[in-house]
């Protein structure tokens, strides 16, 4: 029987790697994948909780997370395409129109 803490540690590590990738990478597609990483980290902990607390709501929540992630990926990638069409770049630090 694997203790829940192990899952949670794994979840924390995956999430933190996602955070790091989100904050540090320049390529916008990789940034997007970092978001998926963070979501998956959270999903791991949710499923682990669901299993250990014997409560189905955790798994239901994961289901919704996946649905929202799909929606978000569709929108986000559409934004990336129109952005690339206008700016011809996939690097987020090339986009600083809001600079004060």
């Amino acid at each position: 029987m694997v203790p829940i803490q192990w899952y949670l540690w794994l979840s924390v590590i995956v999430f933190s790697i996602g955070v790091f990738g989100f904050l540090s990478r320049r390529n916008i597609i990789v940034i997007f994948m970092s978001i998926e990483l963070m979501l998956n980290g959270v999903n791991i902990s949710l499923v682990a909780f669901s299993h250990y607390l014997q409560d189905m709501r955790g798994q239901i929540l994961v289901f919704f997370v996946i649905a929202v992630a799909a929606a978000e990926a569709a929108i986000g990638l559409a934004i990336i395409i129109s952005l690339f069409r206008n700016k011809a770049t996939a690097h987020v630090d090339d986009i600083d129109e809001m600079k004060g």
Binding site: V19, F20, L23, S24, R25, R26
Partner: peptide, 11 residues
């Protein structure tokens, strides 16, 4: 180009 942005350490 370089893959990481300038706030690498902070991140």
């Amino acid at each position: 180009g370089r893959p990481f942005s300038r706030i690498f350490v902070i991140a």
